[in-house]
Design a protein around this nucleic acid. Structure first.
Lengths: 216, 216
DNA sequence: AAAAATGGTCAATATTTCGTCAAGATTTTG
DNA sequence: CAAAATCTTGACGAAATATTGACCATTTTT
């Protein structure tokens, strides 16, 4: 029974959401302000978050980058397109505009939860299937090695912030215990080459003296 | 489990705070006078401080500039606006006025702890993201180098008091072991140039013979 | 007012880090 | 065991960053 956190100050919509979700057999938590939400998130870890952008005190835009490792579906009245791009770049998993069709929302929720189960990560037009060691660049699939996959996964998990080199080494040491900063450099180069072979684009950016991040 | 230090001579309020914080799963320390607080801070390093302004012996206003590297939320009965500005300029991370709503305070605490995690500092219209080596000047982001970031961070941590040159060198020596007073001067110049490129403003002020501080 | 010390900036140089090729070492696969 | 895939390492040019010298402006001291 996946747990879903609704962050919305509008009681009417919130109640409607809660009821529909409970009918669909999800377990539901509620937050009514951004700060509420932060407090709840400091103790609980839901499987998915529904986030209304219009929040008192701390807006949804501000809240979004503070959430990690949990798929967020943004609910908003704004139809602004650049805004949508910003949201998705900023880590939102998906996006629906008010007024929305409840069946559509439920479908999108199911998609996100399934992705989560299957260890699937998306960033721009990259989709990483960590279980099967493949990435899709646009429509073409590419095979990665185990370490390449582990590295790309780390980068795609925090698309905004750079990941330090030592941090990477620690986290992938399970697979490759004797990977050094020297070889890490080489793996990054190999990942780049594989991704570039599709459309010539470079998805990875170096942060001098720190580590690497996805290019925004 | 973040540790929070309550500095308040009012037993009633202090107890109330302690109980609520413990319910929210924080670990709590107490100080009842400014001198108490200094003593505790010389041995412990809490993650956040709740500071009442009205203190015997050593007032909150006097204590505030002595605290470094730890976010301080001021609790005060005064609603004086210039006072509020002074506090924030003086290094307070946030403030609430008595009587306060406990849920709001908890939310503000959560926000500050998050910011602390993310190594985020604000001064006027500057926001420094130390993890990602960027500053926001108004709405435009600028990249800094490692040392530039370390220097600006030091300055923004004590926005009122000048930071001595030798003190700076010590604290950034982790990153750049052979930075001298000569090169420090150059780094400051580079930071200025980068910030000025946005809106022409100079955020850094030299204190002749001592060091540098942020311009108020 | 002159001298001395400190602060500010430009431009050149030195150092560190990055990116990649190619070769050797190790592991996996058939 | 042999072949293939993967991982690690050395080398070297390129890019980013750090340091230094030179020179003038400003402040303090004498």
């Amino acid at each position: 029974m996946p747990d879903i956190l609704i962050i919305d100050d509008d009681l009417h919509i919130g109640n409607l959401l809660e009821e529909s979700l409970k009918n669909a057999d999800y377990s539901v938590s509620r937050a009514f302000t951004g700060k509420d939400a932060l407090q709840i998130l400091s103790t609980e870890k839901p499987d998915l978050i529904l986030l209304d952008l219009m929040l008192p005190e701390l807006s949804g835009e501000e809240l979004l980058p503070l959430i990690r490792d949990i798929p967020v579906i943004v609910i908003s009245a704004k139809i602004d397109v650049s805004n949508k791009v910003d949201l998705l770049l900023g880590g939102a998993a998906d996006y629906v505009t008010k007024p929305f069709d409840m069946r559509e929302l439920l479908a999108r929720i199911a998609v996100q939860l399934r992705k989560n189960d299957k260890n699937e990560l998306t960033f721009r037009d990259l989709t990483l299937y960590a279980d099967t060691l493949t990435v899709k660049v646009g429509n073409t699939e590419i095979r990665l090695t185990r370490t390449e996959c582990a590295i790309l996964k780390l980068l795609m998990q925090n698309p905004l912030n750079p990941v330090g080199k030592s941090a990477m080494l620690e986290k992938i040491s399970a697979d490759t215990p004797d990977c050094t900063e020297r070889s890490l450099k080489q793996h990054i180069s190999n990942i780049r080459k594989k991704l570039q072979s599709v459309n010539g684009e470079d998805y990875i950016e170096a942060v001098y003296g720190i580590g690497f991040k996805m290019k925004s």
